[in-house]
């Protein structure tokens, strides 16, 4: 059924691109532009009222996260329409490939690699300094456009605004998730994350507290111990 075109959230000619645990991503067109439609589906095991509330809340998290990121000078897709009736977000399609594919293809010079990694670090630091936590910083959630090497961050579905007292913890976890993502997806190329982290440390103005907490998180894993 992958090649079939279907109507999703009133939009015709949607081609399924991929399916995750929370939603499906389609490719379509929206007023002369190539667009991506992201639809969250109903979870049958949830109570309908809870389901509706959670779905709406997460739709909001995604959109608000993107808005905030844009205000901090970070590229994100442009949201074209959010439809709460069908739980879908339509946004423009970002040209380029994921950092994951880019790294795997390996067609870059050392200098380009350095530029991309330090840009990742700098931009994540900008987000964090604006108290925005992305929540899912994997190399497939960053798109790089060639040849300019501009980065676009996508999938803000888990993003949130952190409050001061939880800041270091949330940011530490965010960095830890990113480290794991680099390690797992690019085990053959060690040291990538360290370069990004170095750029992060130079950009952020909360390095000390975040780094301390990040080291702690590394020791214990993403989840906080609930003992005691």
């Amino acid at each position: 059924m992958t090649e079939e075109e279907q109507v999703v959230g009133l939009v015709p000619k949607c081609k399924l691109v991929c399916q995750g645990a929370e939603g499906r991503v389609f490719e379509t067109r929206y007023f002369k532009r190539r667009a991506i439609l992201k639809q969250r589906f109903d979870k049958m095991y949830r109570h309908p009222i809870l389901n509706k509330k959670l779905t709406r809340q997460r739709l909001g998290m995604e959109v608000k996260g993107m808005m905030k990121a844009r205000k901090l000078g970070i590229r994100t897709p442009t949201v074209l329409l959010v439809d709460t009736e069908t739980n879908s977000i339509i946004m423009d399609r970002v040209e380029g490939i994921t950092v994951k594919d880019w790294l795997r293809k390996g067609k870059y010079t050392e200098e380009e690699l350095g530029r991309v990694l330090s840009a990742i670090g700098t931009q994540v630091a900008a987000m964090h300094d604006g108290s925005l936590v992305h929540g899912d910083l994997t190399t497939s959630n960053i798109i790089v456009r060639e040849p300019s090497l501009e980065l676009t961050f996508i999938d803000f579905g888990l993003s949130f605004n952190t409050v001061a007292q939880n800041g270091p913890e949330d940011k530490g976890v965010d960095l830890y998730v990113m480290e794991r993502a680099f390690l797992n997806a690019h085990a053959d190329k060690p040291g990538l994350f360290d370069k990004a982290l170095e750029a992060y440390s130079q950009k952020t103005n909360q390095w000390k507290s975040t780094f301390n907490r990040y080291s702690e998180v590394r020791m214990r894993g993403r989840k906080r111990s609930m003992v005691g």
Binding site: L59, G60, M66, R70, T78, V79, L80, L81, V82
Partner: peptide, 9 residues
């Protein structure tokens, strides 16, 4: 357009 599309949130 971003602000129009996402105005509900």
């Amino acid at each position: 357009v971003f602000r129009i599309g996402a105005k509900d949130f």
